[in-house]
Structure formats: structure tokens, C-alpha cells
Design a protein around this nucleic acid. Structure first.
Lengths: 331, 331
DNA sequence: CTGAAAGCGCTTACAG
DNA sequence: CTGAAAGCGCTTACAG
């Protein structure tokens, strides 16, 4: 295996010079540089990242701790994060947490010894106070922490989140602009930070339009396909009428869609439905679902900037991903 | 930051002894072991994997090169692979290749210097001969190579693949057992190794049942939702009759389903449809799609065994994942 | 069974 | 601008 020493020998220079050339140090004469590069190319040489990391006290590796990579939302995010980090020379270590706080903690405990460049949290679960000291230790040891998808600034972790409320307001505005007047909301409201933000956005749109919020049109349910179906069926059976439906997730929207169609209602002429999340699956319903896109590319771009600029000074900041597109997904 | 030296000092032993205890060497007295473990726990000590790797000449890291993590198939596989490797103490480095052969090559060139424990390829693209020398170099340098999803033994890479043909035969048998006699096949046949295997399985089932293969019932198309729709619409317009449909992918099956329903056919009474892949999305059609499960857990279990047993002697072997469940996906 | 010492492959003050 | 040398934190022959 080639080493800096073997490259140095071939180029007739010292290993220090090889290192300087390969690390782009300015203080190398062009003649040295050329000789070194010739040797590097001839040998197909690559620096050993472990030796480098040991010496520098830091790796070029970032760990991504993800809730469940099988969920579309997370796999899309993972893809963008990997690409963004690769673009600035960072490798990505992937851990699928599966909603286990103990696995999270045991990983964080190891992370310091691993001399990671950073740790990115992309979790849907709410975190207990008990990880605070672990996060603080990582911070102290120079591991850059970032959270995507929830605001963790209370743990002093810079966070990148969507402006859920603004997005929901715009989406309901879009339904209102179509002349819909009785717009229902189905989503997980109590017990979910993200969910209650979305619900507040819905309320705000109605209020701004001078419309009342009808309690019978607000259905607080869990984020599941079946819950969307059930909520709609129950409402129809109770004779509740509505001409628009804002769902807090695409799964809920798809369940609702199925229920409406089963009952012979036409989409979107009888009821217009908008989902939340922008999942591909939405393209496969008949008709294709309208949904709010999430923006993994933008989140990844923010992340890239955080790692480029190095550790932010002062207290952790929240970066909001603002743009929220309403789009008709089609296959 | 704690080191083996600091642990050794606290325990009143040499760093060699600390290392032996932490690596589970047998030749340590229980008294030494206890003293060391006490110090380790007190300090919350973890070995530095970079120093370890540099010294041992090998990391505990495996790279997974994946075609496109956003595809359900790959994200499910990634999840299982990560869990299986974590179970045997290996970390997972993730690279999303996005079907770029040049990115594959540049990664492989780096991989040797990284002293990776192994590289797992999970790609749908067919690979050109030009990577053969790169793969051979990795092999020589002790990087364990494994391919999941296609047979790469021609490049001397141990491979884990599904028995596509057997799966397709069983699936068509299942349709035949329901009394279906005119079973169509829609899939990507020419130009896809996996696809042509599936098609052959379909033919075999018909032949074994003493039924002819009608050419007008075989539709060679690309793997896209729209292609499934179009194939069915065209067949119906030409007056072609069929009571069963085996699709080469779930996307195709879902497109076909949509087309059949648009034309007023009842599923499954008029036409029974079976997909291929077992994607979750299948649960969201009305009615839920019947599909063949793929088995990422089994592939991951095979992978685990390969890394546990160390490099296989002799020429690369193919491991077949045989079991193929036909299941009704439901939400 | 245990320890002293060498060395894995780099980078970076330090000296010139 | 360049080189000699120390040292990052481990593991492992080697000696006892």
C-alpha cells in the first residue's frame, strides 16, 4: 500500500511536502508541487483517512441518525443529505434508530471517541431531557450537532425545520381561492408539535378569510391511513357536509380519499383534498392527490452551509425552510 | 479525552493490559480485568476506532453503495443491512450512487485507502467490464465485496440474489389455482436480467399446467406506472380477454389496476392482479394489491453471515434467497 | 500473565 | 520554501 513516504521517495521530497501539496498548502513551490502530483498519479495514491483523522483529531465523517429510513420522508432526506455532504468532502455514516431512545443514547456515547465531524438528528420522536448532557458533551468535544425536522434549540442544537404553520395556511388559502367554504381538517393535533403547528395554520387561514372554525370539521386522529378513512366515514354518516379537506399527512389524505370515493363522492368536484408531505405514493391514487411538498433539498442545503461555515457562534439557531409548494402529484 | 493510557494509569496497569481486556483477550487475570473495567466505567471510556483501525490496518466500517435510496426496495434493504451489520459491530457508510458508474468508480478507488472492512453493492444498473480491475484490487487489499440483487460472480464478487424465476412460477401457480386460465404478463423482459427471469418463471408455470403461452398476453414494457396503464388499455381496446395478470413490478401492477378499474372491470373477480416487490404502496390501492414480497431481511441475514465467516475461500458463490411469499398487502 | 517499546500513516510546530 | 522529528491512540510481537 502506498503511503506519503513512498510518494515522497518517488518524488524526491520529504513526506511533509507531500502532505502540504495534498492538503493544498500555499507554501509549496510549483516545481515541488508538480513532482509530487506526478508521483501521486503514478501510484494512484490516496491519503489514509484514519491516519489523517488520528493526527488531526477529527474525521471527515458525519453520522446521520434517522428515525426510520423506510419512511419516504426520511429516505428522501437521507438522499439529499448524503449528496450535500459528499459535495463538501464528508462521508455519511447511517444509523437507523427505529424510534429507540436507548439506541440513540448508546450511539451518542460512542460518538465522541469516534471523533465525528458532526451528528445530524432526523427524528420524529420527541426527545427526553435525559439526553441533554450527552448532547452537551458532544458539543464540548467539537462534534457539530444539527437537528432536521424538529426544533431542538432548547438543547442548544441548531435546528432546521419547516414552517409548518405558514405552509398549512397557504394550502387552506388555496382551497378557499377555489370557492370552498366548508373545509375540514384531519390530523394529529394534540401531542404532536408539528401537527399542532399545521392545525394552527389551518385555523389562521379560515380566520383571515373571516370564516368560522366549525368544531365538527376538525378531526384529531393518529397519522395513519385507516384513521383518515374512519374519520371521513364517521363524518359522512353523521351527515356532516364539507367541500374541502386539509389533511395533516399524505397517509391520512389517502385514507380519506378512499373513503370519499367509496361513498360515491367525486374528487375534486364534490370534495377537494390536500395532503401534507409530498410523497410519491400520492401519484398512485385515482385521481392523483394534491399535496404540500416537503423540501429535503433545501434542508440539505442549509445543512451544507452549517458544515461549511463551521460551528456557529453563540446560541443555537433555528433555520426555517419557508417555501411550501402545493402541487398536483402525477405518475 | 480519555485514552488507554489514562485508563491504565487509573487502574494501575499497563496500556497493553487495558487493550487486552477491552479486546477480550483470554490471557488476562480476573483481578486485572476487574481493575481495568472499573476504570473504564468510571471514565466512560471508549476506544478510538481510528487509532484502532490504523494499528490493525482495518476498520469496522462497511460501505453500502446503493442505486437510489429513495426507491422503497432500496430503503427497505438499507434498513435491514444497517441493522444486521450493527449487530456484529460494524458501522455503515452510505453512498447513494444515483446510477452513475463514474461515481461508483471514484468511490471504489478511494475505498482501499479507507481500509474498509467491506463494500456492499446494491445496484440495479448493469456494470461494465471496466470496473473489474478496481474490484480485483479491493479484493487483493482485503476489502470484502458482496453484491445484493444481481449476480456478479463473473467479477468474482459473492452475490445474494432472489430466485426470481421460482418466485414468478409460484405466483402464476397461485393464479392458476384460482381457476384463472388466460393469464397475461406485463413486465420489462428484454434488456433486464431480473425481468427476463421473472418472465421465464411465468412461462414455466403455464407450461407445467399444460397451458399455451399466448403472445398477445405478453407485454414487454418499461418499469413504470404509466406503462402498466397503457399496456392494459391497449389490450382492452384490441378486445383481448384475460382473467389474470402477473406484473413484473408493483408499479406496473398499480398502473394496470388503475386502467382496469377505469374501464369498469372488477378486481379481483373479473381480473386478478399480482405485483412483484411487496412495496407498502400496494396497501393504498383500492382494493389492496396482491404482491410478491421481496426479502430484505433474508438478504441482510446472508450478508451478516458472509461478514461473520470472513472471506469465503475459493471462487465467489451465489446465495439464493428462495422463499417468495404471495401476500395481500393491506393498510 | 504482564509490561516496555515499536509502529500503523499521517500532519504540524519548529528550525533553518 | 523545505525537512527532521514528534506524536495522534491504539495493538502486538517480544521478552520476562
Amino acid at each position: 500500500m502506498a503511503t506519503v513516504i513512498s510518494v515522497a521517495r518517488k518524488a524526491g521530497v520529504s513526506s511533509a511536502t507531500v502532505s502540504r501539496v495534498l492538503n493544498g498548502s500555499a507554501t509549496v513551490s510549483s516545481e515541488m508541487r508538480e513532482r509530487v502530483m506526478a508521483a501521486v498519479n503514478e501510484l494512484g495514491f490516496h491519503l489514509n483517512p484514519m491516519a489523517q483523522g488520528l493526527r488531526k483529531g477529527q474525521t471527515n465523517t458525519v453520522a446521520l441518525l434517522v428515525g426510520d429510513i423506510e419512511q419516504t420522508h426520511f429516505s428522501a432526506l437521507t438522499k439529499q443529505v448524503q449528496a450535500a455532504l459528499e459535495g463538501i468532502g464528508l462521508d455519511l455514516l447511517l444509523y437507523n434508530l427505529g424510534h429507540s431512545q436507548s439506541r440513540l443514547e448508546s450511539f451518542l456515547a460512542r460518538a465522541i471517541a469516534m471523533r465525528l465531524r458532526g451528528v445530524v438528528l432526523a427524528l420524529s420522536d420527541s426527545l427526553s431531557r435525559s439526553i441533554e448532557p450527552l448532547l452537551a458533551r458532544l458539543e464540548q468535544h467539537g462534534v457539530e450537532l444539527v437537528c432536521i425536522g424538529q426544533n431542538l434549540t432548547r438543547f442548544n442544537v441548531p435546528s432546521i425545520v419547516h414552517e409548518e404553520r405558514v405552509a398549512a395556511t397557504r394550502s387552506v388559502d388555496y382551497l378557499l381561492a377555489q370557492g370552498r367554504t366548508r373545509i375540514a381538517y384531519v390530523g394529529h393535533i394534540k401531542g404532536s408539535t408539528v401537527g399542532s403547528e399545521r392545525y394552527r395554520g389551518y385555523r389562521r387561514a379560515l380566520e383571515q378569510a373571516g370564516l368560522p372554525v366549525h368544531e365538527e370539521l376538525v378531526w384529531d386522529v393518529v397519522y395513519r391511513y385507516a384513521a383518515g378513512r374512519d374519520a371521513v366515514i364517521k363524518a359522512l354518516e353523521r351527515g356532516i357536509e364539507f367541500d374541502g379537506l386539509q389533511a395533516g399527512s399524505d397517509e391520512l389524505a389517502m385514507g380519506a380519499l378512499a373513503a370519499l370515493q367509496e361513498r360515491g363522492l367525486a374528487i375534486p368536484s364534490d370534495v377537494a383534498v390536500v395532503g401534507f408531505g409530498g410523497i410519491d405514493m400520492a401519484a398512485y391514487t385515482r385521481p392523483p392527490l394534491t399535496t404540500l411538498s416537503s423540501h429535503p433539498e433545501e434542508a440539505a442545503a442549509h445543512l451544507r452551509r452549517l458544515f461549511l461555515d463551521g460551528r456557529a457562534e453563540g446560541p443555537a439557531k433555528v433555520t426555517w425552510v419557508e417555501r411550501s409548494l402545493i402541487r398536483r402529484v402525477s405518475a
